[in-house]
Amino acid sequence: MTTYAGPGTASGATSASRRSAKAPARAARRRSSARAGRRSTRILLNLAAIAAFIFATFPVYWMVKTSLVPTTSILGDGSSGAPQVLPFPLTFEHYARQFQGSAGQQPLSDALYRSLFVALASVLLSMVVAFLAAIAIARFRFTGRAVYLIALMGIQMIPLEAMVIPIYTTLRDADALDSLWSLVALYLVFVIPFTIWTLRSFIAGIPVDLEEAAMIDGCTRFQAFWKVLFPLIAPGLVATSIYAFIQAWNEYIFCLTIMNTGHGTLPVWLGQFTGKEGTDWGAVMAGSTLFTIPVVILFILIQKKITTGMAAGAVKG
């Protein structure tokens, strides 16, 4: 049964010793088979883990790899042999083209500044607004609470792409087109239904007694929220601000319609490289890499905070 024998198992024992100590040998064999079973499970698990890792990261690797080879090797020689897996011959020509920019194109630095401004401003504002609203839902019983909660869910079902025209005309009538603050306000509104919903469960997981103790010690109710509750749900705030950041960082259509040409954020800037006469894959992949890698690094740096935040949020679902 045990074709695989680990060190210290009985399968290598002589027949004599096996006969003389039959019962212990059988027990040992059973133990060893269990251990081997456990070991093969572990090998399978690790193989599955490697497969999951490759599935998750290969496309990103392929993007980086494509951005680092000359256009001629990207497209191959037409004989359709196996694609090259390593970035060889290495070149930075696609990046050089991105950084130099060309006449009539929006500079990378300008798009980067706009992206960072919009993302950071909308994250900070949405955290404040969502924190206040989440307190109201988690700590107060008020008329219209259920309606508010259902509205939060309902809002998330609206396909935002369908809202481009009414939002465009609304901003046009308010004379607020081509303004980064309009984008900030829009992204704020797009993310708060979800962030309020999530923060609510974080707050619900923290005992009210803590705030009540602070109030007995002379805090007002709002001081108790600020001094006691706020630090306690910091992990939750990190987790939800990541969500808000990604939304603002990725948003494409509204930026395209609301901002004038040359005033776009990175996704729109990235769009300029998809020309009419076929896609310049080297340029697109270099642009995508510049756009993607900062977020990947940010995610990996604050990895621990994200997962602990999620663990805390998961308690209450």
Binding site: A49, A52, F53, I54, F55, A56, T57, P59, V60, W62, M63, T66, I74, L75, G76, G78, S80, P83, I246, W249, N250, Y252, P267, L270, T279, W281, V284, M285, S288, F291, T292, V295, V296, L298, F299, I300, Q303, I306, T307
Partner: peptide, 28 residues
Amino acid sequence: VSIGLLTSWATPSVSATQIWKWMFDSEA
């Protein structure tokens, strides 16, 4: 595995789609 997951999570959907489209390119 977590780092792998974070990598695909952090990839903007516009980039991700471009990558998959490129991986299925009819030529190369």
